[in-house]
């Protein structure tokens, strides 16, 4: 500050140079983090697209639509993998959507605070179980106990259904936790308005709270589906068909998903590493996965915008 006589000069309001430098430095650090993330993403997409394109150019197109997925024999029937992924994801959602949403609604609207304090962490622990463990759980428990009971023993030791159920279990905590947050974010004032009009708890939950939270719930479902599509380890362990497999629509037969097929291609094989069509096919599937997830997110976004109740 200057002397008393010219206290109101502009000089006293000027930004100190040291402050300005500190500001600039911080801005640089944060924007560098943003740029680095962007650069990494671009690098990944570039690698993916380059090899995917290389594969697509080189592969005899007839081999992309064939009897099954046998990459080491040059048979790359893509529909085998896509159907496998759809089946696993579908079965997973049959398990995870009702259970996940049910848990979320119970925790947010019905459970006493004391129950919630105990139950919520337990569900979140479920999210922390490594998927490898669930893969073996699928073989040692789900398949012999649940799937066998369901189809009367006509299932194989490794099959798509068991893997799907395990992936579903893996997905429950994501759907439960994200949609519970969405339900709890609905203002108490809306619940009071509903109770004030003589609504019971069930009406309040399904006619007021659930619709108001719908965008968060759709987001939870999309996250869950993306997780199920991307799940690799459980399927690689429990669904069988490691080296490849015939096209099959039977969920009680061994099968392969896109991600599990990619993992299988990489497992300690010197034939594959480096170059060659089989190795490149890995990027092709990866690219397809990327597109599928992207489209899903866009559909979800559109859906949310359409049905959202903004509070």
């Amino acid at each position: 500050m200057s002397s008393d006589t010219n206290r109101w000069e502009i000089g006293s309001l000027r930004l100190a140079p040291a402050r300005r430098r500190a500001d600039t430095r911080m801005r640089l650090i944060f924007s560098a983090a943003a740029v680095a993330t962007l650069a990494i993403s671009i690098l990944i997409i570039y690698t993916l697209v380059k090899d995917a394109w290389g594969f697509f150019i080189d592969v005899p197109k007839g081999d992309l639509w064939n009897i099954g997925w046998f990459p080491r024999r040059g048979i790359f029937d893509i529909k085998t993998l896509i159907l496998g992924t759809l089946m696993v994801t579908g079965i997973a959602m049959l398990i995870a959507v009702p259970l996940g949403l049910g848990v979320a609604i119970y925790l947010s609207e019905f459970a006493a605070p004391r129950v919630r304090r105990v139950l919520k962490p337990i569900i979140e622990v479920l999210a922390g179980i490594p998927s490898v463990v669930l893969g073996y759980f699928a073989i040692s428990f789900i398949n012999p106990n649940i799937i066998t009971a369901l189809v009367g023993g006509s299932n194989k030791a490794f099959n798509v259904a068991a893997a799907g159920v395990a992936v579903g279990i893996l997905t429950i905590p994501i759907i439960a936790s994200v949609s519970e947050d969405a339900l709890r974010a609905v203002p108490m004032a809306l619940r009071e308005a509903s109770y004030g009009l003589g609504a019971r708890r069930v009406s309040t939950t399904f006619r007021v709270v659930f619709p108001a939270a719908i965008s968060g719930i759709v987001a939870a479902l999309i996250l869950g589906i993306s997780r199920a599509i991307g799940e690799t380890m459980v399927v690689a362990i429990a669904a069988g068909a490691v080296g490849g497999g015939l096209f099959s629509t039977d969920p009680f037969q061994p099968g392969q998903t896109m991600t599990a097929a990619m993992a299988a291609l990489g497992f300690g094989s010197d034939q594959v590493a480096g170059s060659g069509l089989a190795f490149q096919s890995l990027f092709f599937i990866g690219f397809l996965l990327f597109v599928i997830t992207l489209v899903l997110n866009m559909i979800g976004d559109r859906l949310v915008r359409k049905v959202r109740e903004e509070y």
Binding site: P187, A189, A193, S194, G196, L197, G198, P211
Partner: peptide, 29 residues
Amino acid sequence: AVEVRRRVGMVFQKPNPFPKSIYDNLAFG
């Protein structure tokens, strides 16, 4: 209590319309 609230309505401090259409707000009760 629910039967009581059907006879005794309440208007709150902060306006709390449902995030629905005007029509659906009125038709809720």
